[in-house]
């Protein structure tokens, strides 16, 4: 189960809307071992693509150094799908490399950049196996 504050869900949804039709991506870091997503870090999609996302390699190094210095880990790794459902694609599964992270998918296929509904779902992706998990929203 992913336990997360509502404002962080809203922040991911807002980022996904803003970057639509390209995929948006980012991380929510939290204290090491806590499993608690706290610090919202939107990243640039270096691929600037509606079907692919990738963190820029220099940004990636900076991000991991910073989390290391703060004793944080990537609790949530999120990205958007802009034309398909919020479910990990084959590519998502093959590149997933943080077994401890919650992979959050946000779909903007209905709302686009507008105010319509966004679909937000959370998954574990470990050794190529996808397991959906419930999201518990807390204040």
């Amino acid at each position: 189960m992913l336990t997360i504050r509502g404002e962080l869900i809203d922040a991911m949804a807002a980022h996904a809307r803003a970057d639509h039709p390209d995929e948006a991506c980012g991380v929510i870091a939290g204290p090491d071992g806590s499993g608690r997503p706290e610090r919202f870090i939107p990243m640039v999609n270096a691929a600037r693509s509606p079907t692919f996302y990738e963190f820029d390699s220099a940004d990636l190094l900076r991000l991991y150094r910073e989390m290391d210095d703060r004793d944080e880990e990537p609790v949530v790794i999120y990205h958007s799908h802009t034309a398909t459902e919020a479910y990990p694609s084959r590519t998502d599964i093959s590149y997933a490399s943080e077994p401890g992270a919650h992979y959050v998918l946000v779909s903007t296929r209905e709302c686009g950049s507008g105010d319509g509904p966004v679909e937000v779902r959370s998954f574990r992706i470990i050794d190529g196996v996808v397991t959906e998990e419930p999201i518990e929203i807390v204040a």
Binding site: A47, F55, T91, D92
Partner: peptide, 10 residues
């Protein structure tokens, strides 16, 4: 030397 898997997908 730092090794980091890309954070990427589709």
């Amino acid at each position: 030397v730092t090794i980091l898997p890309a954070v990427a997908g589709g």
